[in-house]
Simulated scan of single mutants.
Amino acid sequence: MFRFAPSPTGHLHLGHALSASCVWRAAEAAGGRVLLRIEDIDPVRSRPEFAEAIEEDLAWLGFRWEGAPRRQSEHLDDYLRALEQLDRRGLVYRCRLTRSDIAAAVARAEAARGVRWPRDPDGSPRLPVGDATAADAEAPFALRLDMRKALAELAGERLSWPEEGVGPNGERGTVVARPELWGDVVLARKDTPTSYHLAVTVDDALQGVTHVVRGQDLFEATSVHRLLQRLLGLPTPVYRHHPLLIAPDGHKLAKTRGSPSLRSLRAAGWTPHDVLNAAAAGCSEPFRAQEQST
């Protein structure tokens, strides 16, 4: 089982067409099926009209999926149950730190040590951060994974995942997970009772997803997902991370950068063939059959 899982925070662009093409082509090569998931846990940026547009754009491209799309906002109880399981084992804690709190603590730590504070793979300061304290003791809180305790539960066990694509540095085959690089990741945001890391891990298991095809920008996040799978007793899919489409300015295509949407390309006269042809170069390799890891 494969899945395509965009967020309804804007219209799809060529980068999404590339990823969707990779998903459906891999599923066809493996004789598999594709599910559509709408990852709408962001209560501010997610909008129903964007979710509708996703289905319309995918249908225009000729992609078909099995059943009704799963909308994450309708399944918050699933994520709460996973959080409760981790909380009972003392692996989750409340964090009221704001970005300003973290930035101030990092500045103090860097000044005291004379070296740059460690960052996670996304470039954010890695928690815990020294003497960081929340400016407002009554402020809303996020729930974070206590990475030290989580890794202690593994008792030295080495986590890995099967990679059928290629990582940013050429990683293939069996990839060793390094969740410690992320520090205490957020599992539930201040404005919603889950996070991307937790929701995607739980959803893949509940939906029976056996193959995950997605961009290389999520390659490093797989280490967190692999750890959560282990802690929650969930199966590990086969992964394939594909190269990204890069804009002329050297950045990946993104909604926040104003990348042309599929709708604007369609209005300009592009056909589905034009779009898929433009995205085809990034997903030429089919999935190879492989058993799931546990």
Rank of each mutant, 00 (worst) to 15 (best):
L151A: 06
P8L: 00
G15M: 04
A188E: 03
A205V: 08
L14D: 03
P118T: 15
S284E: 13
F2I: 05
E39A: 07
A254F: 10
A135T: 13
R108A: 15
R99S: 10
E153H: 13
I38Y: 01
T174S: 10
P168W: 03
A17L: 06
P140N: 10
L265E: 01
R37G: 04
G165V: 13
A199I: 09
L127P: 01
R226W: 12
R240H: 14
S46L: 07
A280S: 09
W182Y: 15
D40A: 02
S100W: 08
A289N: 05
A221P: 11
R71T: 10
G67L: 10
H251Y: 13
L234F: 13
S73T: 12
A68Q: 14
E39G: 09
V129R: 01
A142C: 10
V166S: 06
D184G: 10
E163Y: 09
A177F: 07
P8S: 01
Y79G: 08
R148E: 12
R240S: 15
A199R: 05
Q207H: 13
R25T: 08
D136Q: 07
T294L: 11
C95V: 13
A111G: 02
I41C: 11
L198W: 03
P8Y: 00
L143A: 01
W24R: 05
F4D: 00
R113N: 05
V106N: 02
R71K: 15
E55V: 00
S21Q: 11
A111L: 11
L265M: 09
Q72C: 07
R257F: 09
L159H: 03
D274A: 10
D101V: 14
F219E: 04
A27H: 04
L253E: 09
E291I: 01
H251T: 14
D136N: 11
W60G: 04
R47C: 07
D249Q: 06
G183C: 11
V44Q: 07
R64H: 15
P235E: 05
A281Y: 06
C95M: 05
L61K: 03
P260C: 12
H11E: 00
E56V: 00
A135V: 08
R96Y: 05
G170L: 10
E291W: 00
A279W: 02
V106I: 07
G183Y: 12
L91H: 10
A111K: 11
G215M: 08
E74V: 02
L265Y: 03
R240M: 15
A17P: 01
T194Y: 02
A199M: 04
R214M: 08
